[in-house]
Amino acid sequence: MSATTIEAAEVDRFTAMADEWWDPKGKFKPLHKFNPVRLAYIRNAVIGHFSLDETAREPFKGLRLLDIGCGGGLLCEPMKRLGADVVGADAGEKNIQIAKNHAERVGLDIDYRATTSESLAEQGEQFDVVLNMEVIEHVNDIQLYLESCAALVKPGGIMFVATINRTFKAYALAIVGAEHVLRWLPKGTHTYDKFVTPEEITSILKRCDMPIKERVGVSYSPLEDKWKRSKDMSVNYMLLAEKPKS
């Protein structure tokens, strides 16, 4: 494996939690709660971008999709059910084992690989859709990482980036609130310094010839106990980048 941008301590931390991936009431409860809003966003954006049939049971049929930092496969499985040809990549070997094991038990054919975006890029792999969800805030060298991700997108393809903004509000909610007060996430899950602003991502991707097509915020509604799309990008947000057709 080539020089990697994934920090060893980060990989260990997530691998330790991996057994609980699929328990909606377990440690990954926040991700299960977060899933509907990002799935809805991905679905609509992919259908819109590729002009797919939204009434089809498997509208993503024929698309090759990569989920980077796939963890236990919370996104890969829905993407497969929507018809995509899915590769799930994660640097944590144990995560990949758990994801493989689960997909097999539920009868879904997903290509899980314990690898990094850098080595996939070196192998010349390319995809119509690249999902880069809640990963970037755990990466050491964002520039290097995003460059490798951009290389994985086919011309005419798209990449989703979801992460947490570097603002005081994000610090208060995502670290103090989610880790220390509500205990949604184990302490140390996130480090403030690693949070990334939309502008930073935008400028790196621009240099990779991947302009941003859309930016949306994601906010938690405590009354409904539900995550919703919003205009407020100061904490959680998603970006949609597009690679021009050469």
Binding site: P24, K25, H32, N35, P36, L39, A40, R43, E77, P78, M79, K80, R81, L82, V106, D225
Partner: peptide, 21 residues
């Protein structure tokens, strides 16, 4: 129907919990 459109496992507790809530 939303879970199905999103590709989720419609029998999964994470989905059914939303109905109960």
């Amino acid at each position: 129907i939303l879970a199905m459109r999103h590709g989720e496992d419609i029998g999964h507790e994470a989905v059914l919990e939303r109905y109960e809530k």
